[in-house]
């Protein structure tokens, strides 16, 4: 495992290229282990009480979930566009794209706030039943990822500020972007699992 960060900046170098540095993939794989365990636990409990979980799913608002899914997908598109623009040495576009993705993340948090407060008003809390325990815990753990991811995006914007794109280390951008895509991916699985799958 090489310690140095390799600035892989040539376009030709992207054939068979692993984005970001190797370590972030260890993190991503590790985080997916956690979520795989969480999903398996959820499915095991659901198999034991299908009616309770069915009623819980029916109490969720799929429109809010869908809005959040669209926000996540849009943010990922912005991040990918930003990285692509950085590779082509386009100035200003990467930072603008990351800022737009950051705004999507803030929108996601806003929708989550509306969703949680509606549940609390309806008297649904993590203590209500097993379904809502999983719902709040899993979306809460994911929300922590969103907040960390927004910090990462802000870090990328700060990193780009005052630097010419030619000297920016693309690998750093890819590492941060890969984390944001993980946040997006986890939400899509959560959305399917909690809101959709009957």
């Amino acid at each position: 495992m090489s310690g140095a960060v390799r600035p892989d900046t040539t376009r030709a170098g992207f054939a068979g290229h692993v984005p970001g540095e190797a370590g972030i993939w260890l993190f991503i794989a590790g985080d997916m282990v956690l979520f795989s365990v969480l999903f398996a636990v959820f499915l095991t409990h659901r198999a034991e009480a299908p009616d309770l979980f069915g009623a819980g799913r029916a109490a969720l608002d799929p429109r809010l979930g869908l809005v959040n899914t669209l926000l996540m997908l849009t943010s990922s598109w912005f991040v990918a566009t930003g990285v692509a623009a950085a590779r082509r040495r386009r100035p200003r576009i990467p930072a603008a794209c990351f800022a737009a993705a950051l705004a999507c993340g803030a929108g996601f948090a806003g929708v989550k706030y509306l969703e949680y407060s509606a549940k609390f008003t309806a008297g649904l809390t993590p203590m209500t039943d097993d379904f809502f325990m999983f719902y709040f815990v899993y979306t809460g753990i994911h929300m922590i990822h969103v907040v960390i991811g927004m910090g990462v995006l802000y870090g990328l914007i700060a990193y780009l500020r005052g630097r010419d794109i030619a000297v920016v280390n693309l690998q750093h951008l890819e590492t941060g972007a890969s984390f944001w895509h993980l946040v997006d991916l986890l939400w899509i699985v959560l959305f399917a699992l909690l809101y959709l799958v009957a």
Partner: peptide, 23 residues
């Protein structure tokens, strides 16, 4: 330092553990 004292994957491993113990 060149090379770094600990390999860089160790940094990501530590971040991962920090996230994992949140629950």
């Amino acid at each position: 330092n060149v090379p770094t004292v600990f390999p860089r994957w160790v940094a990501f491993f530590n971040l991962w553990c920090a996230v994992l113990i949140v629950p």
